[in-house]
């Protein structure tokens, strides 16, 4: 099983990289969206999946990444890469300044506090002149979906390699220990405050890069769409559906849910809106530890897997 994993991942990667050469324009556009969502799910995976802090503030990172690119390219006429770097700097600064107070909160309190941050950021950016206030910014167009697709894929690869490293490093073990029992981690020598802030910032780096690429691709940003909280909900659903705290789970979750939701919205529009809600309920009840865990355990336990999970939720 383990020996087959590396070739399987490489083949999947080659197929994904080749999509723009044989796929239709629509497929490539779908791919860019799905890959960026996968990056967001992986970003959330670091703070939510590995560290156990269910952040609703990751759409803020995404928004700051979008505005980093927007402001740099439109207002200062700087290259795209500089804009990406600017967005990352903004996100890391945000993660450190607000992470220190907010990451003291636990569980629901943390979730609610980060939710409030996203609302506050929308309001602030709507009043910042350089960010185009509530009208937004129009970026110089670049008609090159191949480039955007490969950029998004490259970013996903880097995010996944980072998480792979995390899963077998001292830093990653510290994060997992915090998730499993924060007080227990502290008395064993884990600098919990530092580690949580670093995880939040790292999560922010990937979200910001995804936001920056998306902004340049769609060539338009405004506060409502850049700091859209439903995007945060989506990345959580995808990560949790695929398997939070695993290396590949969030990718599988993001790509499969994107595909299903795309199919539904083209076939039966009225149901598509309900889709994510249904997925949340089904995932929480039937497979609370995600698709990755389900696939692994299903082979040995079979349908009993679902029965046991239903029993455990005590409906």
């Amino acid at each position: 099983m383990k020996a087959l994993q590396i070739p399987a991942v490489l083949i999947a990667l080659i197929v994904l990289a080749a999509v723009p050469w044989f796929g239709s324009d629509v497929l490539v556009q779908f791919g860019i969206n799905a890959l960026l969502l996968a990056v967001l799910a992986q970003g959330w995976n670091i703070i939510g999946g590995y560290t156990g802090y269910a952040s609703f503030g990751n759409s803020v990172f995404y928004g700051l990444g979008s505005y980093g690119v927007g402001i740099a390219m439109v207002q200062w006429e700087l290259p795209f890469a500089v804009g990406l770097a600017f967005g990352v700097v903004l996100s890391v600064a945000f993660a450190i300044l607000l992470g220190i107070p907010v990451l003291r909160l636990k569980g629901h309190y943390f979730a609610i506090a980060t939710l409030a941050l996203a609302q506050v950021m929308t309001a602030i950016v709507s009043n910042v002149k350089i960010a185009g206030q509530n009208i937004g910014l129009v970026l110089p167009p670049l008609n090159n979906d191949l480039l955007f697709y490969e950029l998004a894929l490259g970013l996903l690869v880097v995010a996944t390699l980072t998480i792979y490293w995390l899963s077998r490093s001292r830093f990653g073990f510290g994060l997992i220990a915090i998730r499993e029992n924060e007080e227990g981690a502290a008395v064993m020598g884990v600098n919990t405050t530092l580690y949580k802030v670093l995880a939040f910032a790292l999560s922010g780096v990937f979200s910001a890069l995804a936001g920056g690429i998306h902004a340049y691709w769609v060539t338009f940003i405004d506060p409502e769409s850049a700091f859209d909280i439903s995007l945060n909900v989506k990345m959580i659903i995808m990560a949790v559906f695929g398997g939070p705290g695993t290396v590949f789970g969030p990718i599988i979750g993001a790509l499969s849910l994107s595909a299903i939701s795309e199919f539904l919205s083209s076939e039966i529009t009225s149901i598509a809106g309900l889709f994510f809600g249904v997925v949340v309920v089904a995932a929480v009840v039937l497979m609370p530890r995600g698709l990755a865990d389900m696939l692994r355990r299903f082979r040995t336990t079979g349908w009993r897997y679902f029965a046991e999970n239903i029993k455990a939720t005590r409906l």
């Binding site: 001292r170 073990f173 510290g174 220990a177 499993e180 029992n181 227990g184 064993m188 020598g189 884990v190």
Partner: peptide, 24 residues
């Protein structure tokens, strides 16, 4: 007792060796 419930017994103890005295 508060082990790290989702981790193996080995990795529970490995956390102590990774961190611990002198930074582990």
């Amino acid at each position: 007792m508060r082990p790290f419930p989702g981790l193996s017994v080995l990795d529970n103890v490995a956390v102590g060796a990774l961190f611990g005295r002198g930074g582990g």
